[in-house]
């Protein structure tokens, strides 16, 4: 950038400051760009409908009101019923928590077997599971509907849990397998000589090592399952719909004036859990993605 022949320490310092300044300016710009929609959503949800109609989109609310939030939570109409998002929010909780726990546990066991107890055909099975990650959702809709019917869990929350567990195993197995594969096989050998069996080794040695990858998997699975719309809309019925489907119904089934403030509040409510999970476990997420091996 500058002529090196007239190089002096002070000019170099100045250069560093300028670079830093530029860097922060660009980062700030990006941050603003990303935060803009959230800002609009939050301010709009705190305004009254009158204010929305007369004011500017990005203006701060003149009178802050939480009425839209109350309506979104417990009064908004989804089709014929007008009880807000709350029942569907609990549906989502009842669906996401077991689905995340089960798929993570199965993924951990699968990864442990594939990475540490190499058996004939382990690689083929792993490739097939990996393939499962890349099958588009739409492709499995019909066979899955048939399957749920056969199992007699169609339209129920356990049915949805089942779908999400099946669809999640590919990813969770991939995560755990890649984490465990970097751990020396001598660990299993040492434990075998110590007299520990398959589950004992998993429980006492591998699971305590796995916190970073468990966090990654839980965040990934929770985000996927909570935000899922397609499976939710396809395999649920009135009363078992997850929050994403209910949100869609609130936004799309209003007649007359569109209550933007309620829509915005509802959208934030529906997105809040994934946001919170990321805020609280985010540092483990980064750590788990970057750190794989355990120095032994």
């Amino acid at each position: 950038m500058t002529d090196n022949s007239t190089y002096a320490p002070s000019s170099r310092q100045w250069q560093t400051i300028a670079l830093r300044f530029g860097l922060y300016a660009i980062l700030l710009l990006f941050a603003l760009y990303y935060l803009m929609p959230l800002f609009v959503m939050i301010t709009t949800s705190l305004k009254s409908l009158d204010e929305i109609r007369t004011g500017s989109l990005i203006a701060l609310p003149r009178d802050v009101t939480f009425e839209a939030w109350r309506v979104a939570w417990s009064g908004a109409c989804t089709g014929i019923k007008c009880e807000g998002l709350s029942p569907y929010f609990w549906n989502s909780v009842q669906l996401a928590v077991p689905a995340v726990v089960i798929s993570t546990m199965i993924g951990a066991l699968n990864g442990y077997v594939i990475a540490q107890w190499r058996f004939k055909g382990a690689n083929i099975i792993f490739s097939l599971m990996l393939f499962g990650c890349f099958i588009p959702f739409q492709v499995v809709l019909l066979p899955m509907a048939k399957m749920l019917g056969l199992l007699n869990i169609a339209g129920t929350i356990p049915g949805l849990i089942f779908v999400h567990v099946i669809y999640g195993i590919g990813f969770t197995t991939l995560f755990f397998r890649n984490y465990y594969v970097s751990i020396s096989q001598e660990l299993v050998k040492a434990a075998k000589i110590d007299g520990a069996g398959f589950f004992r080794i998993f429980w006492s040695i591998f699971l305590p090592l796995s916190l970073p990858i468990i966090v990654v998997t839980v965040i990934w699975q929770f985000t996927q399952i909570w935000n899922d719309f397609l499976f939710g809309v396809s395999f649920s019925q009135a009363g078992t719909q997850p929050v994403t489907v209910a949100l869609n119904n609130i936004v799309n089934s209003t007649t007359g004036v569109k209550a933007y403030n309620v829509d915005m509040a509802a959208a934030i409510i529906a997105g809040l859990p994934t946001l919170l999970v990321y805020i609280f476990a985010g540092k483990y997420f980064i750590r788990g993605l970057t750190a794989g091996s355990v120095k032994g």
Binding site: E186, A190, K192, I193, D194, V294
Partner: peptide
């Protein structure tokens, strides 16, 4: 006979110590 019943003990190249214990 399985390793645990052979009345042996083994020291490994990587030591294979249990990292969390």
């Amino acid at each position: 006979i399985s390793p645990k019943d052979r009345d042996i003990a083994m020291v490994f190249q990587s030591y294979a110590l249990y990292p969390t214990m």
